[in-house]
Write a protein that binds this DNA or RNA. Structure first.
Lengths: 258, 258
DNA sequence: CAAGACTAAACTGTCGACAATCGACGCTTA
DNA sequence: TAAGCGTCGATTGTCGACAGTTTAGTCTTG
């Protein structure tokens, strides 16, 4: 038993939580497209590769199922969620609904500190734009929007945003690259922040709608033009997982003996 | 393999899905308060009572965890989510955000059929009001709002509504009874529907805000007044599950050998 | 008598094992 | 040649077992 007396410092010790680790790994594999939409998630395979038994893998898969990244077909296994055009519209529709609200709340809660964070994130967007690293750019973009949700101060709203974002990451991963002109994108964030600083709800809503609506149309267009690997088809043709997730045996995950 | 030629008749075979059944049972136990907030969910206990092993129980628990009904404390088990005042504000804030949007979409998609469904549901609300069955009344109330989300036609939005509703059911279960005058509540749904029929976005938003805002304030008031069993306290005092979920051994769930 | 140490019982985290089921392949038959 | 059937390997659904932790309860000790 440990004494547990000095309540100082909290490195938030690594989670002994195998399930959590597996869930993270799986999530990454999905959003990065290493497990393409429609792919069957073979429990034993993942388990072997990660050096664990199937139990934690199944539990992690349940988590992702509820999150919407995987779909469970009883007796047939877990499959990576497929997207259709409708899904993209749904996701953006909901995202718009949520972020509009978040932005208004954020304006209400805005402090000098949080305002600076937003400003700085826009700077990051600009500097990242020079890097020619689309994935990074997308990530920093989300970070800005996530910041708004954080400032809004509703944890459930933030979680919802994260869920939507991971679905979007999948979609964008499929498309490949998203932005024609990263700097242009970075700039379009500015009026959103300006409106939030100004604090006028109607202006905020208008700018958020403009900003997200733009992304919506853009993604919609790209997806319609480039249906990559047929991954956006709506039929049940099972795609095979790529060989990378195939067979190995050495433990990759470790229970960090705290 | 079966022949699959004549597409005649379909008895819609029962789900063999044990995990799904367990998840449903657990969800009910939680929202009905048989597992009070803060209660530890002992895997072996549930498993024994349901006549299954721990594996399906754990998987079901993961589902509920992701849904927010349970909280997982590594190495300590699953606990029923506790609510604080903040949670109620969060839930209603998000609900308002979502339903406002849903109602506008619903108006856009409204067909004579869907309009009738809404009308009929309001009738049900009125007839149920005479029954003095608060739980039922709450359920029919939600059904009306859920219908709006259905008509809105965004599946993710509908799922979000369901998640929020199950959290609210928990809260309301805690409070005990909610409505002072069920008929009054039934009536307040009418202008919402009227606005949807009329189709004017601003009016719709206004009425939804009025309607839900009313419920919000009401629930907030009741919760603040009556902190039942200390279940709304925010501290980590583990509540014991009620004896009902204690020890038995006969299998309750069955794999329907279809 | 209260704070702390110690012990035993109760649980959780994982694993490996097995039976049931699914899907693919190849053979048979109109 | 194409639809139907049977077989076999691959994979899922569950279980029971075990080791390591956490918790509750008891016993010391200042």
């Amino acid at each position: 038993m440990r004494t547990m007396s000095p309540p100082v410092g909290l490195p938030a010790l690594a989670d002994t939580d195998l399930v959590g680790q597996v869930a993270r790994v799986l999530t990454q594999a999905v959003v990065q497209g290493r497990l393409p939409p429609g792919a069957k998630v073979v429990e034993a395979g993942i388990a072997r590769e990660l050096g664990v038994s199937r139990a934690p893998v199944r539990e992690a898969a349940r988590l992702l199922e509820r999150q919407g990244l995987l779909v469970a077909h009883p007796r047939r296994g877990f499959f990576v969620r497929k997207f259709e055009i409708d899904d993209i519209d749904e996701i953006y529709d909901l995202r718009l609904c949520v972020e509009r609200h978040a932005a208004v709340l954020a304006a209400r809660n805005l402090t000098p500190q949080s305002r600076d964070k937003l400003r700085r994130q826009i700077d990051v967007l600009h500097t990242t734009a020079d890097l020619d690293d689309p994935a990074r750019q997308v990530e920093e973009d989300y970070r800005f929007h996530r910041l708004i949700c954080e400032i809004a101060g509703n944890r459930r709203l933030l979680r919802l945003f994260d869920d939507l974002a991971s679905e979007l990451r999948m979609v964008i991963g499929l498309i490949g690259r998203l932005y024609d002109d990263p700097h242009e994108i970075a700039r379009t964030h500015e009026p959103v922040l300006a409106a939030i600083e100004e604090g006028h709800p109607e202006r905020i809503v208008a700018w958020v709608e403009y900003h997200i609506g733009h992304a919506w149309r853009e993604v919609g267009r790209l997806v319609r033009e480039i249906p990559p690997h047929g991954a956006l088809k709506d039929e049940a043709n099972t795609v095979r997982a790529r060989s990378q997730f195939a067979r190995k045996r050495k433990p990759v995950l470790q229970r960090s003996k705290a």
